[in-house]
Computed example of a mutant assay.
Amino acid sequence: MAKANNSLIGNNQNNMTTGINGTGIPALKSLLATDAIRRQIKSLLGEKAGHFMMAIVGVVEGTSQLQSCDPQSIINAAIISETLDLPIEKNLGYAYIVPYKDKAQFQMGYKGYIQLALRSGQYKYINSIEIKEGELESYNLLTGEFNFKFIEDINQRLEAKTIGYASYIEFTNGFRNTLYMTKEQVNNHAKEYSQSYAYDLRKGYKNSNWSTNFDAMALKTVLKLNLSKFGALSVKVQKALQLDGSSITEIKDDGTISAEYIDNDNKENKIIRDIELATKDGILELLSNANTISYDIKKVAKENGIDFDNMTKKELEILQGIIDEEIEKRMENC
Rank of each mutant, 00 (worst) to 15 (best):
G112F: 01
I20Q: 00
A166F: 09
L219C: 07
Q105K: 14
K29P: 01
A190H: 07
T221A: 06
Q72V: 15
E250K: 15
I257G: 00
I79S: 01
S167G: 03
A198F: 06
L32V: 04
A36I: 15
L118T: 10
D153Y: 08
K302L: 13
M217V: 11
Y100F: 14
I75P: 03
F106K: 01
S120T: 13
A27I: 05
I126T: 05
N5S: 12
A104D: 00
A104W: 01
D254S: 07
I251W: 04
K302N: 13
T63G: 09
I306G: 08
W210K: 05
Q238P: 02
Y168L: 08
S81E: 00
N269E: 07
Q156K: 15
Y205P: 03
A240F: 06
D324I: 15
N187K: 15
S68K: 14
N15K: 15
T17F: 15
I126E: 02
N14F: 15
E61S: 12
T292A: 10
G134Y: 11
N269C: 10
K101N: 14
N310W: 03
N291Q: 14
F308Q: 00
E135W: 02
R176G: 07
K206E: 10
S247A: 12
S64I: 10
A55L: 12
A49D: 09
Q320L: 13
S81D: 03
A33Y: 09
G144H: 07
N269W: 05
L44Q: 11
I318Q: 09
G50N: 15
I272T: 04
K299A: 15
K191Y: 12
N291P: 06
E315Y: 03
I275C: 03
T249G: 12
G174K: 03
G121H: 06
Y125V: 12
T83L: 13
A27R: 07
K29D: 00
T256D: 14
Y295F: 14
F106E: 01
D153P: 02
T178R: 08
D153T: 05
S258E: 10
S234W: 00
N140I: 12
G231A: 01
A2T: 11
I79L: 06
T279R: 00
K103P: 08
N147E: 14
F214P: 02
Q156R: 12
Q242S: 12
A77K: 04
A160I: 00
C69W: 00
K183R: 07
N304E: 06
G121F: 04
K267A: 14
T143A: 10
I25N: 03
E276S: 15
A36C: 11
N333D: 08
K132L: 09
G245N: 00
N147W: 11
